[in-house]
């Protein structure tokens, strides 16, 4: 038996919104410790990795590990039937999980709706992501990162990210001209959500597709801060941390010139 009840149902809506543009089908791997998902986009350029800890649910019950193969478009359609303030419960029979039951309860518990989503067998490639000591780790307001991606898309489909001790610089060069945004580290003790920090082992300069980066910024409503981890000749890690877990995106860099 699998059962996971999330008091903040809106969080599930936001999570789904931050995954569904990148992948259409995905396995939700459920275990005693929580729910996780790893999926690559069709072109194998980007990967999303989601982890939700069991303690974030009340109650959480999973007797044995199993996978829920979900079409995210279908799940999204059903999730639209949930109110933003609803408590959402996911239920499945782990021995023969051919459907996922979704229960939406409003705060006064007067309205309860129940939906069954048909599950599918998804044969998904799983990548092993090594623990990496990144050359540069940058924490910044997630809304700022979203704005930079949106703004620079006006200029080009690619962005070069340069990180030094004193600044992180985003540069775009296109047919109409060029643009760049530089951010310096700031620490605002009373407003930690607005701070920018740079931890640097060595300077980094990497080029990425803005289309994918802006796709990742769909995670913005999940966290005030976003973490960017970069190393030369390594995929970029973009992480949004939540109370209940995290969503991580990996993006392969552009190579050569």
């Amino acid at each position: 038996m699998f059962e996971a009840r999330l008091t903040q149902g809106a969080l599930l809506k936001r999570l789904l919104d931050s995954v569904k543009e990148l992948v259409t089908d995905a396995n939700f791997d459920c275990s005693e410790t929580g729910i996780s998902l790893q999926a690559m986009d069709n072109s194998h350029v980007a990967l999303v990795s989601l982890s939700l800890r069991a303690e974030g649910f009340n109650p959480y019950r999973c007797d044995r590990g199993f996978s829920l193969g979900v079409n995210l478009n279908s799940l999204n359609k059903i999730m639209k039937c949930a109110g933003n303030e609803d408590v959402i419960t996911l239920k499945a029979d782990d021995s023969s999980a051919d459907s996922l039951c979704l229960l939406f309860e409003n705060s006064s518990n007067e309205r309860v709706s129940e939906y069954e989503l048909k599950l599918m067998d998804i044969d998904q490639e799983h990548l092993s992501i090594p623990e990496t000591d990144y050359d540069a780790t940058v924490m910044m307001p997630s809304a700022e990162f979203q704005r930079i991606c949106r703004d620079l898309m006006v200029v080009s489909e690619s962005v070069t990210i340069d990180v030094s001790k004193d600044e992180i610089k985003f540069t775009a060069e296109g047919e109409l001209g060029t643009g760049n945004v530089k951010l310096k580290p700031t620490s605002t003790i009373d407003k930690p959500e607005e701070s920018i920090t740079i931890e640097l082992g060595q300077t980094v300069s990497l080029q990425f597709s803005l289309k994918y980066l802006s796709n990742f910024t769909r995670g913005t409503p999940l966290s005030d801060q976003v973490m960017l981890c970069l190393s030369d000749n390594m995929p970029l890690l973009v992480e949004y941390k939540m109370d209940i877990g995290y969503i991580r995106y990996y993006l392969a860099p552009k190579v050569g010139d």
Binding site: V45, E125, H126, S128, I129, Y250, K254
Partner: peptide, 14 residues
């Protein structure tokens, strides 16, 4: 122009 890399060349499949 630079070409888009793929994750397969950085991470191994399990």
């Amino acid at each position: 122009a630079a070409t888009q890399g793929r994750l397969d060349s950085f991470f191994t499949q399990v």
